[in-house]
Design a protein around this nucleic acid. Structure first.
Length: 576
RNA sequence: GCGGGCGUAGCUCAGUGGAUAGAGCAGCGGUCUUCUAAACCGUUGGCCGGGCGUUCGAGUCGCCCCGCCCGCGCCA
């Protein structure tokens, strides 16, 4: 889709090429830094060198011979030193952008580049029989935002929650249930019970190899369909899904499939056989299936345990094979932590060696680890674990306190709804506002910040727009006759420029698998609005025509902010 | 040892070869009789870890160091 800024870039390029001063292939436009008074720039260095002239001279020649074709978005063209600076025609831009937003509404910023190329995204994937904690929040939130963004870009996206419900890990739970009895209770509390016996057994296992054997044996019984093992397993799976769903609902997360690792059990033997038959793997003296020397610097790994049990790797290979056969994707994305990088490199290499992934892009979207205040890893044993539910509850409570103070007149249920949107939004935003590769040190005040570069700030600016629109309607004002040409104040044109950038930001976020690009756009949009709010009154505009134009601008801003926040999975309340 | 990531203001972070490196938080000083002060304005704060190179131009690319984090066969 060609949005206003795409058109502007094309027309600016054409205008420069039209001077005949520089060959088309040497024209490369860049977006200048904010302190430069231009919307696009052509650094003339390379072209000047190629043409054997001084760069400032070439820039000057281009600027003085450029012709502005009527009806284009190209405004002033000036040379500053070796740069040709191109300004946008702000009036035409305003008219174009407002028109786009009014026409496209909640689709403003979307695109069609996906073109039928299916993308499978593996995200969230918590373990069964455990509560979700701070460690799960990143894959869940980043994953859902990528789903939203890629869908918006027109890719058919299939999300899959690859539940950790199999393998030795669950063998430990089964063995623990045998030893300590199955925990009783309901919901979160019951899950905590499972967790408790799991950690107890796990630490006992450390100095008793017999317990380790037992857990492994139970994982085998589960794989082989032992009815007792399957019954406990089923209860644990159902319970976990039920409890997790509450978290997903609060976070605006909806995952298309929840196959889980167990789903692939019937396919595992075939995968192992195939790897052996193709000579990609071999069985060693101990009986384990080994994959060796697939690629330089790729460490050896196992596809089957020596006792016949399968591994994470086995199930992941089967998962890829299944996904490709079932969904015919052009791409599979894993939203997984950096510590899993080696595993995925091995997995991808193995799938390539097996010939499973012709024409399929395998992508690891990686993120750093969460540590506590002191830089220690979060763990149940350390007692520093932060559970997702209590995190969200705390966020809600803090936001609720602010609503209570700021808007005591609102009805109770609306206060609650606002507190939920704002509190949860703050948590989500905290994970999406930066490049995910960095490790995060847990800091409640930063995580639950309600001011500055935060979701609540953006939500607040949106609510202010909505408030203006409500008040205008009360007074009988409408946007009718609101010509974009009245919007000439610097704060207004700054807003329009920012509005125009949403489609660009969405595309970049998709290309880089980087929701923070959208988050950044939202924040910059909110700041642009606050400048406008300070400088330009809507209801008290000098003329009815100006008021109507500003009403259009404010409505468009609310719409665009809402779209941006939606891509992050953050709600935009009408009032705060 | 091998592999990967990170290093930009006191703290948390943007900056994907171009012009004078930008935000938020914290600090200091101001602004509510005004379309919501979850806001706004002003201000303090930088050998961009270090070195060498490539380039007309390097926070950005390459190489070498330094520091921190992570991973490296029967867990996931």
């Amino acid at each position: 889709m060609e949005y206003a800024l795409d058109r502007f870039a094309r027309e600016a390029h054409e205008a420069i090429a039209g001077t005949g001063q520089v060959p088309d292939e040497l024209i490369e436009l860049v977006v200048p830094k904010p302190n430069i008074p231009a919307d696009l720039a052509f650094p003339a260095f390379r072209a000047a060198k190629e043409l054997g002239v001084a760069a400032p001279q070439l820039a000057q020649r281009i600027a003085s011979s450029v012709r502005r074709a009527a009806g284009t978005l190209v405004g002033d063209v000036t040379a500053i030193g070796p740069f040709v600076n191109v300004g946008v025609d702000t009036v035409l831009l305003a008219d174009t952008v407002l028109g786009e937003i009014e026409r496209l509404g909640e689709r403003y910023g979307s695109d069609e580049q996906g073109n039928g190329q299916t993308t499978v995204i593996d995200y969230s994937s918590p373990n069964v029989a455990k509560r979700m904690h701070a460690g799960h929040i990143r894959t869940t939130i980043i994953g859902q935002s990528l789903v939203n963004i890629l869908r918006f870009l027109g890719y058919p996206v299939i999300g899959d929650n690859h539940l950790g419900d199999w393998g030795k890990q669950f063998g430990v739970i089964l063995a623990a249930v045998q030893r300590y009895g199955e925990p009783q209770g309901e919901g979160e509390e019951l899950l905590a019970g499972f967790e408790e016996i799991y950690t107890r057994y796990n630490s006992a296992m450390k100095d008793d190899p017999a317990l380790d054997e037992e857990a492994r044996a139970w994982s085998l019984r589960l794989e082989q369909g032992d009815p007792q093992a399957r019954a406990i397993w089923q209860r644990a799976v159902d319970l976990t899904l039920r409890v997790n769903q509450r978290m997903y609902d609060r976070l605006g997360v909806a995952i298309d499939h929840t196959y889980g690792e167990s789903f692939y059990e019937p396919m595992l033997a075939g995968v192992i056989e195939e790897a052996l038959a193709k000579g990609v793997a071999y069985r060693d003296e101990g009986g384990a299936v080994v994959v060796d020397e697939l690629e330089p610097n790729l460490p050896t790994f196992l596809l089957q345990r020596s006792d016949g049990g399968t591994l994470y790797m086995t199930r992941d290979v089967a998962t890829i094979k299944f996904r490709i056969a079932t969904f015919r994707p052009a791409r599979i994305i894993y939203v997984l932590g950096i510590p899993q990088e080696l595993h995925l490199r091995q997995l991808f290499a193995l799938c390539r060696a097996l010939g499973y992934v012709e024409g399929v892009d395998l992508v690891h979207v990686k993120f750093g680890t969460i540590f506590d205040q002191d830089g220690q890893p979060l763990s149940t044993r350390r007692g520093n674990m932060v559970y997702l539910e209590s995190l969200l509850n705390e966020a809600h409570a803090r936001a609720r306190a602010v609503v209570e103070q700021a808007s005591p007149e609102l009805p109770d249920d609306e206060k609650d709804a606002i507190a939920e949107a704002v509190g949860v939004g703050a948590v989500i935003y905290n994970d999406l506002y930066q490049d995910p590769r960095r490790d995060i040190r847990l800091d409640w005040n930063r995580m639950l910040a309600l001011e500055g570069n935060s979701a609540p700030y953006i939500q607040y600016m949106h609510a202010r727009c909505r408030s203006i629109i409500r008040k205008a309607a009360d007074e009988g004002y409408t946007a009718d006759g609101g010509e974009a040409s009245f919007l000439t104040h610097p704060s207004e044109t700054a807003m329009i420029r920012q509005l125009a950038k949403l489609p660009v930001a969405v595309r970049e976020a998709g290309e880089r698998y980087a929701p923070f690009v959208v988050a950044e756009w939202c924040y910059d949009m909110a700041r642009a609005l606050s400048g406008f709010y300070r400088d330009c009154s809507v209801l008290k505009a000098e003329t009815p025509a100006l008021r109507a134009a500003r009403l259009r601008l404010v409505a468009a801003t609310a719409r665009a902010l809402r779209n941006g926040l939606a891509l992050l999975g953050i709600r935009a309340p009408e009032r705060m």
